[in-house]
Amino acid sequence: MSSRLNPYISFAGEAKPAMEFYKEVFGGDLAVHTYGEFGSEAPPGYSDKIMHGMLETTSGFTLMGADNPPGTEHKPGNNIAVSLSGDDMDELRGYWNKLSDGGTVSVPLEKQMWGDVFGMCTDKFGITWMVNVSEQQG
């Protein structure tokens, strides 16, 4: 898989209906994962909230979205982040290193509970970036 650049929208509890709406609009395949799918790891009150949703369309569009994690404020204007994903660790780590330099790291780029390497930072211009490196299938 080559690397891709796509929007990631945050919601205040309505990620599931919103992502279902986008599926109606654009068509394609929608995959959603709730915080509860990870069992005891789900924060209180979040078991049915969307931890990650991804819509992939036949036109080649990818739209991701999730409910804001606990402890983070949702306000219009900060509800979109840019997500870089793929399976090329060197390429994506290179982007991560440059984006996080001079910025603020909120989630270090490291292996996460879902098996991928993930990190989140805000660059020196105030743009939020998420980098996800999928485990290579082999």
Rank of each mutant, 00 (worst) to 15 (best):
S47F: 01
T62C: 10
G65N: 05
G28N: 06
S47M: 06
D48W: 02
P17K: 13
K16D: 08
L109D: 05
K111R: 14
M130Q: 12
A81N: 12
Q112H: 13
G13E: 08
H33S: 06
G65C: 05
T72N: 10
G36K: 01
D88W: 09
W129I: 03
M19T: 02
S59E: 15
P43A: 11
E91F: 09
K111T: 13
D123M: 11
D90G: 12
T122G: 07
E135G: 10
Y46A: 10
H52N: 08
P44T: 05
Y35V: 00
I50G: 04
A15H: 03
Q136A: 14
G119T: 01
R93P: 00
M130K: 02
I127R: 10
M113Q: 06
V32S: 03
L5I: 08
G138K: 12
K75W: 01
G119I: 00
A42N: 00
L63K: 03
D67Q: 09
K98Q: 10
P70D: 07
M54S: 04
P76R: 13
S59G: 14
G126C: 05
A66P: 05
M51K: 01
S100K: 09
Q136H: 12
I50Q: 04
S83G: 01
Y95P: 00
P70A: 13
G102R: 13
T62P: 04
S3K: 07
D29P: 01
E20C: 02
E41Y: 07
D87I: 09
A66I: 05
V105F: 09
A31R: 13
A18T: 13
S134V: 13
T58M: 08
Q112I: 09
G77V: 06
G115K: 09
T104P: 02
G39Q: 00
D67W: 07
F125W: 15
D116A: 14
G60E: 12
D87E: 15
I80D: 03
K124R: 15
H52C: 01
N97D: 15
M54R: 09
G65T: 07
D88I: 11
A12M: 07
F21Q: 06
M51G: 02
I50K: 08
E135S: 14
P43N: 07
G13M: 10
T128L: 04
N79V: 05
F61M: 15
R93G: 01
T34W: 05
G138L: 11
M113L: 14
Q137Y: 03
P7K: 10
K111E: 12
G60V: 10
G77Q: 06
N78I: 04
G115F: 02
L99G: 00
I50T: 07
D116L: 09
T122D: 08
W114L: 03
